[in-house]
Simulated scan of single mutants.
Amino acid sequence: MTVSEKPVVTVLTAPGEDAPPGIEDVKARAEVRFAWDEQTLRDTLPGTDVMMVTDFRTEALEAAWPVADRLQWIHATSAGVDALMFPGLIESDVTVTNARGIFDRGIAEYVAGTMLMFAKDFPQNIRLQQKHQWKHRDTELVHKKRVLVVGAGSIGHQIARLARGIGMEPHGIARKAKTDDPDFEAIHSNEDLFDQLPLADFVVIAAPLTPQTEGLFDQKAFKAMKNSARLINIGRGPIVKTDDLISALDNGEIAGAGLDVFEEEPVPEDHPLWDYENVTMSAHMAGDFIGWKRALTDQFLENFDLWAQGKDRFNLVDKKLGYASK
């Protein structure tokens, strides 16, 4: 690329998806191309310097990868990058950034709302209202309840702040233990997970999907939890073994689950989880707030300007670990 040339940005979208809001600001800085499958990637990747990925179909990108002759950087418009990673990308010199920070507050509010919803028994309130039934019950306090956040990254820290703000006691699980974190009572190492599970009233999965976390919540994990504990998953669906979760609910090994992500998405209409009164489900939307798509473009532009100036970008992903570690 010469000084007079504009850099080339290829935006990978889903077929039929509208261009990201704010794309005109990207076009003011770069030549913008669009791709949505293997053939369009093969057409657009030669000469591309940067990719902005809004749709994560690794198979198409991996198949077209050999023609990416000038690619320096891929930006994923999501916090998780597990679906994007394949050996050719991991082993290449192409850097990857993600959307860390955009969804933190929204997800934390979702988690706080879910914990309060369970404590105050709002699902039953709604069912009784629909039946026009007046039924007084006593409900729980969240004050002094212990929250174990599995994945003490930026989302986990935001969850801990809100949990602390409503009087709860947040503990975290991360690669390294830490006792002086301002948001958590303590952060425990991954190796201490099964020591911490029996102590928690709420267990929140906020970890990325990696080979180490896939299937982490299985029969053994559920048996380790309190019978009165609730599981909340806003991380990735495959971290939880669904069949083991159903067995744990049926056997009373845990008291309920709040699920935003699933092993299979969308969840089939005949899936048994729909009918559990102690399970709440949402359509992988915990972090999506009004205006989030434009916020993702603005974040990309901020990083793009740093890249264009030869400065360090933020949210660099450790491709071996599978997440942004700083």
Rank of each mutant, 00 (worst) to 15 (best):
M1I: 12
S4L: 15
E5Q: 15
L12N: 07
L12F: 13
T13V: 15
P15V: 06
P15L: 06
G16V: 11
G22T: 07
A28L: 12
R29K: 13
R29T: 09
R29Q: 12
A30D: 05
E31L: 07
E31P: 13
A35Y: 07
W36I: 05
D37F: 02
E38Q: 15
D43V: 11
L45Y: 12
T48F: 12
D49M: 02
M52Y: 10
V53D: 01
V53T: 14
D55C: 15
A60F: 15
A60C: 09
E62D: 13
A63C: 03
A64V: 15
P66I: 01
A68N: 04
D69I: 05
R70S: 13
W73V: 13
T77Q: 00
A79W: 00
A79S: 02
G80W: 00
V81N: 04
D82L: 01
D82R: 02
M85Y: 12
P87D: 13
G88N: 02
E91K: 14
E91R: 14
D93N: 14
V96L: 02
N98M: 03
A99H: 06
G101S: 03
I102A: 05
R105D: 01
G106S: 08
I107C: 00
G113I: 00
T114A: 06
F118V: 11
A119W: 09
K120I: 01
D121C: 07
Q124C: 10
R127V: 14
R127P: 15
H132L: 10
V142M: 05
V142C: 06
H143V: 10
L148G: 12
V149E: 09
G151D: 05
G151M: 09
G153T: 08
G153Y: 05
H157V: 12
Q158E: 04
A160I: 06
A160R: 12
A160V: 08
G165K: 04
M168C: 05
G172F: 00
I173Y: 08
I173A: 04
D180Q: 03
P182S: 08
I187S: 02
S189P: 05
D192H: 02
L193P: 04
L193I: 09
F194V: 04
Q196V: 00
P198V: 01
P198I: 00
A200V: 04
D201G: 08
F202M: 08
V203A: 12
A207V: 02
P208M: 03
L209Q: 07
E214C: 03
E214W: 01
F217A: 13
Q219L: 02
K220D: 11
F222R: 09
A224K: 08
K226E: 07
K226I: 11
N227K: 10
S228G: 15
S228R: 10
I234C: 08
I239L: 03
K241T: 14
D243I: 04
L245N: 03
L245E: 02
S247R: 12
L249R: 10
N251Y: 14
G252T: 07
G256F: 02
G256M: 01
A257H: 00
L259G: 07
F262R: 01
E263W: 00
E265L: 00
V267I: 14
D270F: 08
H271W: 06
W274Y: 14
W274K: 12
M285L: 15
G287V: 04
F289L: 15
K293R: 15
R294F: 09
R294H: 14
A295N: 13
L301D: 12
E302A: 12
W307C: 13
G310R: 09
G310T: 08
K311T: 07
F314S: 09
V317K: 00
D318G: 06
K319F: 11
A324L: 04
S325I: 11
